[in-house]
Design a binder for these strands. Structure first.
Lengths: 207, 207
DNA sequence: GGCGCTGTTGGCCGCACGCCAATAACGGTA
DNA sequence: TACCGTTATTGGCGTGCGGCCAACAGCGCC
């Protein structure tokens, strides 16, 4: 008997990890360009070329997938050791700010999207993720300027400084209202002031 | 003929403005305590004691109502004239920071909710509203410290400073990781540095 | 070449939202 | 006081999205 013309399989079977990452990549792209509500799970599934139900299988709910995306996006590369704490304060600060702006300028759009405020309604889960990322960044900054990263109040101040960093980068990347070197100036001066004039006074300012 | 026992009306008819505000109040409350997606129009309608369809009648879509809420929340009371630009820089700065923290501490939770980052996905509409509010705040700050509020780059720097302010307030209100006086110290020092060391150098740092 | 494991599909179900015609509260008028 | 027009308000319908699950099929193994 003649064998029927071999039809190629309608879809390929992938390793769970591979499929998972494929979906995640597509989700990162879409959530990066549109707000949460404007991205449907159908969009993501279509973009990844899979059935909608598969998203639930791998990530649970749409929100869970979203959280995974945020986790992925807030990762910053390791601080280069060349920036290590050597030389006078001003030089160290300027080098690390410069390094940071280099890093950011690569993922500029994505970075701005992640740190952007969507508005009212603080989601505790998202909050936690961003807070963790901010805290990690704060530790790096404190190490760079040669301070103990285990003092809670110091990290809190530097996390607040992170708010300045994000807002300044937004002005630079988004609106072109500040140039890179103006941002550099602002962030350096602010950090120097914090290290020299604010952190030493922390215990004095009641507790 | 005997009149039937007068039944009280099943609902009262209100002036459009009154009804509108009533719904808006309820929406502000709910959006303040839960993220956007976790608040259904049914919740808001039930909270306000009206039919769900009335929300659409007054505000259009759920998103439109949400935008109205954001607009409402980002309004800051007028800067008290008593803070006007008198006395040395340090004193003016400290007074205005103090005034600001007083104002914020009243609506603390709401303020934090509004300025909170929901995460990925920048909504251009929301972005615009928050940007406008930030810019207005920047103008007030510049006036308080006695500078021209019409210099674009200066306002951009102060808007970035606003990022520091919000983050610092979050540390104070949310996590109790900083005390009010520590926040006061941080914000005052930072603003003084900006006014003294950053703004004058803005044109120098290329353009 | 059959057989089982499991990655993948497709469709069902419930829910939330936008829309619209019908309804009823309230002020004015005779 | 009884009626009437205006319009604020309701209630239900249609649509689209997201979670779930049972059946299906790609792929490795005996």
């Amino acid at each position: 008997m003649t064998t029927a013309p071999a039809e190629p399989p309608r879809w390929r079977r992938l390793e769970p990890d591979a499929r998972r990452e494929q979906i995640l990549d597509c989700a990162v792209r879409l959530f990066g360009e549109r707000p949460y509500a404007a991205v449907s799970t159908a969009d993501i599934a279509r973009g990844a070329g899979v059935a909608r139900g598969l998203l639930n299988h791998y990530f649970g709910t749409k929100r869970d997938l979203y959280l995974e995306v945020v986790r992925t996006l807030v990762m910053l590369p390791e601080l280069d050791d060349a920036i290590a704490a050597t030389g006078p304060l001003r030089a160290r600060v300027q080098r690390s700010v410069e390094w940071f702006l280099d890093v950011v300028s690569v993922h500029a759009r994505t970075f701005v999207a992640v740190t952007g405020a969507e508005g009212v309604g603080d989601d505790p889960e998202i909050e936690r993720i961003l807070a963790a990322a901010d805290d990690a960044a704060a530790r790096k900054v404190l190490e760079t300027v040669g301070l103990d990263a285990d003092v809670d109040e110091h990290r809190a101040v530097i996390r607040a400084y992170g708010g300045l960093v994000k807002a300044a980068v937004r002005e630079w990347v988004r609106g072109q209202t500040l140039t890179r070197s103006q941002v550099q100036l602002l962030l350096s001066q602010a950090l120097i002031t914090i290290v020299r004039d604010v952190l030493p006074e922390m215990e004095t300012a009641d507790d």
